[in-house]
Design a binder for these strands. Structure first.
Ligand SMILES: [Zn+2]
Ligand SMILES: [Zn+2]
Ligand SMILES: [Zn+2]
Ligand SMILES: [Zn+2]
Lengths: 143, 143
DNA sequence: ACTTGACCCTATAGTAACTTCAGGGTGTGC
DNA sequence: GCACACCCTGAAGTTACTATAGGGTCAAGT
């Protein structure tokens, strides 16, 4: 199986596959005589796994950890469960941030109900007079 | 006013101020004889405005547009209102995405209630068997 | 006068997860 | 024998900063 076919079954681009190999998420496959990458079923499974993790917005670091845990079939899955809990917490943090943002934006939007002169716009006035607060450290990788 | 003082009143770092200048968000100030940047009240206002926009997770492109609209005081504020509506839509899209993600993660988490053997872990099984869907184009800049 | 320390300057590289591009080889159907 | 789809590598672009290297400026203390 060549890279184009692999990319198609995993719903991603050829460039993404090559990128994952460079990142160490996907192991380097055998090559044909023409130096083409040649993949098997295991690569398909692993790439689909990675894409599913990405669809859940895990980072490459998280996926790396997960793959590392999976590749030690002797142990128990406690680390897997924990990783998922941590990632769910990342999502929770970002959802809370966005809720607050949404509320602020709603209030700001209410300050101008119609098209006015520029310097009468309550939105611009609001943006100028907001309390500027220091950027706090992020507790989530979700932007 | 030197750059350190400006950064302090705007709750950001000196590097960020210099970066905004390079990006064209903040106009280049006068220089002292020692080649130090020298800022006035207008710079303070503009930087605070920018930081407030960033606190609302607007992109630099959005802030650029906003500053461009503000700098034409002759027009009405329709564009400002529209920009805010668009940005609120960005937040809405991302909140909806995260809600769905959270639901998926909750379901996935439920598939493993205790520490089991690695190949019995319902989470890993779930991640392996999820329907891999193509990445759709993003309708929001919020990660 | 000399040094220490806090501040300032520029330019460059690194972050995350890709995407795009330049410049080239391979393989198949007509 | 040639068009065209596919493959290869390596480098640069994306966003909004952050960090580092390597240097200049200035006020206070000794
Ligand atoms: Zn996470
Ligand atoms: Zn308005
Ligand atoms: Zn937006
Ligand atoms: Zn488990």
């Amino acid at each position: 199986m060549k890279i184009g076919e692999l990319a198609q079954v995993a719903q991603c681009t050829v460039e993404t596959v090559r990128y994952y190999e460079k990142e160490g998420l996907l192991s380097a496959p055998a090559r044909t005589m023409a130096n083409y990458r040649s993949y098997g079923e295991l690569h398909v499974e692993r790439l689909r796994f990675i894409r599913n993790c990405r669809a859940l917005d895990m980072t490459h670091a998280e996926i790396h950890r997960l793959l590392g845990l999976m590749d030690q079939p002797a142990g128990d899955c406690g680390g897997v469960n924990q990783l998922l809990d941590e990632h769910i917490a990342h999502v929770d943090v970002r959802m809370a941030e966005l809720s607050q943002l949404k509320q602020q934006l709603r209030e700001l939007r209410q300050r101008c109900q119609s098209e006015q002169a520029m310097d009468a716009c309550g939105i611009l006035q609001g943006l100028a007079s907001m309390e500027t607060e220091p950027r706090h450290e992020r507790q989530t990788h979700l932007g």
